[in-house]
Amino acid sequence: MNNLDRRDRQLLNLMQNEFPLTTQPYLDIARQLDISEEEVLNRIQAMKQNGIIRRTGAILDSKKMGFYSTLCACRVQEEQIDKVAAIINAQKGVTHNYVRDHYYNIWFTLTAPSHDEAMKIIRDMQQAAPIKVLTMPAIKTYKIKVSLDMGDKDED
C-alpha cells in the first residue's frame, strides 16, 4: 500500500510530534536525522504527492479563536445521503463529515464564529434538507492529539 522506508517513518514521527519552529525547520529536521535538507524536502514532497501528508501547519484552538464548534448528527434516507451531504458540505464551517454505521448515519463537525451563527446554519440546513440535526458540543476536552506512531524500524 505505501512504500515508506525507515527514514520516511522517522521523518513523519518527527514532523507530527516535534516540528521545529525555526526559520529553517527542514534544515533542523535534516540535522536530527543526519541527512541533507534537500533529501528532507524531496521526501516530504513525495509523501504529499502520494497522499500521506495532508498538510503541515498550525492546528488552531477554535475556542481560543473565539469560535463555537459542535459535533452534529442526523438521520438521512440511504438514497438521499449524497444530496443531503452536498447541502451540509456547502457550509464552510463543516470540516469533517462521515457516513457512519448507526441509526444517525451522518455525523459532521461544525465550527462557526458564534453559537448563534452555528444555530442559524443548522436551521438553514434543516430547511434545505429533510433532516433534524442533533448537536453535541464538547463540555470538556480530555485529549486532542492526532499523532500516528509510524514506528522507525524496517519491519512492523
Binding site: M1, R54, R55, T56, G57, A58, K64, I144, L148, M150
Partner: peptide, 20 residues
C-alpha cells in the same frame, strides 16, 4: 500564539488511511 494556546500544535497532519 502557541504560548497563548491559540495554536494547539504545529505539526504535519497525515491522512491516516494512507499512513496505514
Amino acid at each position: 500564539l502557541q504560548d497563548e494556546g491559540v495554536i494547539r500544535r504545529f505539526a504535519a497532519i497525515l491522512r491516516h488511511y494512507n499512513a496505514g
